[in-house]
């Protein structure tokens, strides 16, 4: 894990001075976030900090007012979701992350929509080897899956196109603690270890920073603190505010309070 920005790998996704919101009203103000291949960049912050809006702006679902999003060096600011998928960006939303009316197999086929016809079936088999639990559920409607199975399918669907960057919006919400840990450790972290660049927004801040390489604390639409994830995890002020630890107040607390 990097201990300084100089040790980070070349950045694949670079968000610079991003101002974004809805109907012309900014919610995110001048945010800089980036992630390199093999890295997990974890974004934490209180409710209403603008985490989801930031992800929506990156993935073409919210209005970008200023700033830029670069993917593999190319400007993709404000591009539509289908254009971003072609450019190598995968997105796993917090809710509505699978096509409930389609079967597991059809969900995977839609995940591989941009692949050549002959490559879809072999890629489905390849992806299913990483998610053996889904193998026996191919014909099951996605709406009938459990929360954990559904999240597994959402991740498998995104992997169909072998994206360079994968963005997760609170992948453990509504999951039991043991399933949540498995999603973070066995899937999100493993994806980064296999070379993908991963952006992770999480409410389970402690667990998310534990598997992360680089951390960002977003408060009131601005990056309040960024640095090595382990360093953020060790900070008393952040620990007390966002990780549920009880410590004595520190001066830094005031710096990051909204």
């Amino acid at each position: 894990m990097p201990t300084s920005s100089a040790e980070r790998p070349p950045q694949v996704l670079e968000v610079e001075q991003l101002v974004a919101g809805y109907g012309g009203a900014p919610i995110v103000h001048g945010v800089d976030v980036s992630v390199g291949a093999g890295e997990v960049a974890t974004i934490i912050g209180p409710n209403g900090a603008g985490k989801s809006t930031l992800l929506k702006a990156i993935t073409g679902r919210a209005e970008v007012l200023e700033g830029s999003v670069r993917l593999d060096g190319k400007d993709v600011t404000g591009r539509r979701g289908d254009q971003l998928a072609r450019a190598g960006l995968g997105f796993v939303p917090q809710v509505n992350d699978v096509f409930g009316t389609l079967t597991v197999l059809e969900n995977l086929e839609m995940g591989g929509y941009l692949l050549a016809r002959k490559d879809v079936a072999p890629r489905v088999e390849e992806v299913l080897t990483a998610f053996p639990a889904l193998c026996d559920m191919r014909t099951r409607r996605a709406s009938k899956l459990s929360g954990g199975e559904r999240k597994m399918l959402a991740i498998a669907r995104v992997l169909m196109l072998r994206p360079n960057v994968i963005i997760f919006d609170e992948p453990t919400s509504n999951l039991a603690p043991v399933v949540a840990r498995s999603v973070l450790e066995d899937q999100v972290r493993v994806l980064a270890n296999s070379g993908s660049a991963v952006v992770l927004v999480e409410q389970r801040a402690s667990e998310a920073l534990t598997i992360g390489d680089w951390g960002y604390l977003l408060v009131a639409g601005r990056v309040s603190v960024s640095g090595p994830a382990a360093e953020l995890l060790g900070r008393d002020d952040i620990g007390e505010l966002f990780l549920g630890r009880e410590t004595k107040p520190s001066p830094a607390l005031n710096e990051i309070s909204p």
Partner: peptide, 10 residues
């Protein structure tokens, strides 16, 4: 089912 999710699939 979900146009935004469909777009994110390409």
């Amino acid at each position: 089912c979900d146009p935004a999710l469909a777009r994110s699939c390409g």
